[in-house]
Structure formats: C-alpha cells, structure tokens
C-alpha cells in the first residue's frame, strides 16, 4: 500500500493504474437469453416466409381492398366519435361525482354503476332494438303529455347510432372514473391559490386544475383509446361495417380466413402505433414544468 500526497489535480488513471477500475460482473444468463430470443425470432421469420398457410399473396391483394379500406375508415370514425362522447360524458359525470351537491352526486353514481355494471354487448343490442321497447321516440311532456316532435325508433336508431350510444355511454362511465382520479390527484392548495387570486370557479378548473390533472389523465385515456380502437369490432353484432366485420364478410365468402385476419391485424397494429406516437407527444406537452432540467416548453 502506498500513500501519496497529490501536488496537482490527478489525471484520469490509465487502464492498469491503481486504484483498480470497477467493472460489472459477466452476465452469462443474458447471453443465453439473447441466444434463445434470436432462435425464436428466426423461427417466426422462417414460418412467416415458408409456411404457405399465411398466403401472403392474398394478404397483399386484400390489404388495400376498397371494402377493407371502408372498414378502416369506419373503425377510425367510430373510435374517434365514441371517445369524444366518452370524454365529454366522462368530464361531466366525473365533475358531478366530485360535486358537493348530493343530487348531482347521486345521479353520477347511478350512471357509473349502471353503465359500468352491464356488458357492452347487452347495451349495444339494447340500443339497436330500442324499437321493441319504444316504437316511437318523441320529445315532449312525459306520462302522455303533449309531444313536440316524434320519430319512429327504427328510423332514428341505425347500426351506427346504436354503436355510438352503446360504446360511448359505456366509455363515458370509465372515463368519468379516470378523470375523477386525475382531479383528485391535484393538491387542494392549488385550488385555494387559484381562488385567492380571484379566478372564477370555471377558470380555476380550466387554468389551474385540469392542465395539471391531464398528467394523470392522459396515459390511461390513451390506453382506453387504443382499447376502444379494437373494441369497436364488437359493433359487428349490430351489423356495422367496421374493419373486423368487413374482413369477416370477405372470408365468409372466400374461406381465406387466415390471410384476411392478418389483414385486419396489420391495420389494427398500424393504427395503434400511430396512436401511441400521438399519445407520447401529448404526454410530453403536459409534463411542462416537471422535467428534470430547465428547458423551453415544447409548445404552448
């Protein structure tokens, strides 16, 4: 052992100099796992290329088939509208559940209880068959009072409106809980500081509470969005031509089941990937002020 009094700041020591360099232990297990993963991926690639069952030529033929593309468009349209309904209903019901007004609270509780507690499939079929319960939909005074206008239920409720109502209201119940959780995550001091500055209740919500709650609301909402994209396929039970139903109508005629399911899977994968990228950017936006280092905000 040697002691030395440094007369000047020492240089970074060379590879063989004392004190010894500290290194990681060898990760033998990692190399074994890597080999296993490589073999597994190679097998999957081999199967994808050589297994004639995949019928890639048929996949290619149908990937941009007009029926499939119309299905994709319908899936996107339905998902976006359902999530829009879900978010609007969710904000309303979520706020009602946090209200001190007992009646609002009760109504919101009841809504979440019912729409979260019954299967979506049942709700969809219920809306689709609304005509069986109420042949005429009318707007007016209840209990046989005067009616302002009236329309037959079969005309008002198409596959599309049934899917919108069924999925949208159900989603609203889930979104209400997500939004409530986000709002609860904000410290009461933030609301007090906002009030003390003279913000009106709506300003306190819009300017102070909601932007901070978004940090907790966006990730699970992205999850819901991605889940809903695929869940819209349940609307095929009310004969709506979204992506899944579109490929079904083709393969029920041609019996090319596997390649057409691959077509659907590829489209879902693509749409989910786009959504994930969008979610990433939205999350980054709401992290403003929370990053470790100081840098200018992404956008305002």
């Amino acid at each position: 052992m040697t002691t030395n009094a440094a007369t000047e700041a020492p240089d970074w020591p060379g590879p063989h100099a004392s004190p010894e360099r500290i290194v990681d232990p060898p990760h033998w297990g990692r190399w074994v796992a890597l080999a296993a993963v490589v073999v597994g991926l190679a097998w999957i690639a081999y199967q994808l290329i050589t297994n004639p069952g995949f019928q890639w030529d048929i996949v290619g033929r149908y990937l941009f088939d007009p029926i499939v593309l119309r299905g994709v468009a319908m899936t996107i349209q339905l998902t976006v509208l359902v999530m829009a309904i879900g978010v609007v209903v969710g904000v309303l019901v979520g706020l009602m559940r946090m209200s001190r007004d007992p009646l609002l609270n009760f109504c919101a509780h009841g809504f979440v209880w019912f729409f979260r507690g019954t299967p979506v499939l049942v709700q969809l079929v219920f809306w689709y068959n609304l005509a069986a319960l109420f042949p005429q939909l009318s707007f007016g005074i209840p209990f046989d009072g005067p009616k302002f206008f009236e329309v037959s239920a079969t005309a008002a409720i198409s596959s599309f409106t049934a899917a919108l109502l069924g999925l949208g209201l159900n989603e609203g119940a889930y979104m209400a809980e997500i939004i409530r959780a986000g709002l609860l995550s904000i410290d009461a001091g933030q609301t007090e500081a906002s009030k003390a500055l003279g913000h009106r209740p709506w300003q306190t919500f819009r300017v102070v509470v909601l932007p901070q709650a978004m940090k907790a609301i966006v990730p699970p909402t992205g999850n819901q969005f991605i889940g809903m994209l695929k869940y819209t396929s349940i609307a095929s039970v009310v004969a709506l031509h979204e992506l899944m139903h579109s490929v079904e109508t083709i393969y029920s005629r041609t019996y090319e089941t596997m390649p057409l399911l691959i077509v659907a899977a590829l489209w879902y994968l693509f749409m989910v990937s786009v959504l994930s990228v969008v979610q990433h950017f939205i999350e980054r936006h709401y992290l403003k002020g929370w990053q470790a280092e100081v840098h200018t905000p992404l956008q305002s």
Binding site: E192, A193, K195, L197, R200, P201, P211, G289
Partner: peptide, 26 residues
C-alpha cells in the same frame, strides 16, 4: 355564490405556507 366571492377575493392577496405556485406555469 363562488362567482360573486371571486370578485371580492381579487382585492385580497394571499400567501400560503406551501407557496402553492402553479407548477405547470413558468
């Protein structure tokens, strides 16, 4: 109402123990 009270609060400054600055704003 909260709306009416907010007008009165605008004339009264308040400083809190835990600062309560808005973290998402510069």
């Amino acid at each position: 109402s909260e709306r009416e009270v907010s007008r009165q609060r605008a004339d009264i400054g308040m400083v809190f123990q835990n600062f309560n600055l808005f973290p998402h704003m510069s």
